[in-house]
Design a protein around this nucleic acid. Structure first.
Lengths: 191, 191
DNA sequence: TAGCGAAAGTTGACGCATCAACCAATGTGT
DNA sequence: ACACATTGGTTGATGCGTCAACTTTCGCTA
């Protein structure tokens, strides 16, 4: 029983004007609220699951995994700190701290950029790549178990489109989604 | 132009068997990876936006907001710590720390449960409710600006259904989505 | 009613994120 | 060539989350 839920009627829409007392602005309709609650639950739960698996099996956080993956798919496995921060939605201080730990563990190395001597390059070491290869299957399985396997091909398309719409607002520059591999499609180049 | 994107063809599906070298398990198809990347980006970006707004305008984190909201919609504005933790996807220690801070700020109060003297009840104070009412409009506007306004009614339904499918895996008990308001559908009452 | 395991919370230590301050290099204008 | 604003990055202090004890109470069983 896979239970698609493909069209469970969301709670009937009520007028936005009266939901709770002592509310000034226009509140959400029930439909909106129901969807919002689920979205919030999703963003609350997923990170925990991903972190837990990676910490357990590879002693890295999901964020560190993202950093390493980003480096792995960068030319020469190398990227400037600023670019790396942008790609992973990190502040520069945060990335700097993370990079220090990763470097201490031998997973990346840092060296001053020859062209701009203010800049620092981070490069994924062989050990880092090895860790990534070691961690990937488990991570993949988690992604499958909690997300991908639950979705029909149609669902997958819908997720892709829907997330795309939201990311236009949350990440208009497409910093996080511009992977070197897939040449960026037409996600509103905007600039 | 609102750009529906309702059916942008996701990157053409390739065979799962050859994507990156040095990969043992069955990797993702391009379609899967593209959707996955977007989902990850979403869960990475949304929390930051919500936290930022609430911290700026109400000096509370989004998690604290969830805690207060949960209490607000509990009978007598009161809930046992364990139940509250479950509803907000927090560990008990985490909630305990948060509750201490909220109590110090006068937003909630804690008192031993009469029926079970191991248990602690948390209750939303008038000040807490006031803060909530004060914070709600800004939070609502953020939700609208970054998410709800970007979605057509159809999108909203799709989001609801899609998140529902994923939450069946991530939160099979429906701990986070069982709001007192919407009588829970058939989300496994379990107790 | 004594004993014992499980449940409910709290506390303290440690790790990661954030913010402000700081340093170094770039480049821009005069 | 010299000031000055800007960019790139690191560091240290503070706050929140996690994990491992620990305490108290409950419920069950002998």
């Amino acid at each position: 029983m896979e239970l698609q839920t493909t069209s469970v009627p969301a709670p009937e829409t009520t007028d936005p004007s009266m939901t709770e007392p002592a509310m000034s602005g226009p509140a959400m309709t029930d439909t909106e609220e129901a969807a919002w609650v689920r979205l919030v639950a999703l963003t609350e739960l997923l990170p925990g699951v991903l972190d837990a698996q990676l910490l357990r099996e590879a002693q890295i956080t999901h964020f560190e995994y993202l950093v390493l993956m980003t480096l792995a798919s960068s030319p020469d496995r190398t990227s400037r700190m600023t670019r790396l921060a942008s790609r992973t939605n990190a502040t520069l201080p945060r990335l700097s701290h993370v990079a220090k730990r990763l470097e201490q563990r031998g997973l990346i190395e840092r060296f001053p950029c020859p062209e701009d001597r203010r800049a620092t390059n981070a490069r994924l070491t062989d050990a880092g790549l090895a860790l990534l290869d070691e961690a990937a299957p488990g991570h993949l399985e988690t992604a499958r178990h909690y997300v991908l396997d639950a979705l029909t091909p149609d669902d997958l398309d819908r997720l892709y489109d829907l997330a795309g719409v939201l990311l236009e607002r949350l990440d208009p520059e497409g910093r996080m989604t511009a992977t070197a591999c897939h040449p960026a499609k037409a996600t509103a180049p905007a600039d």
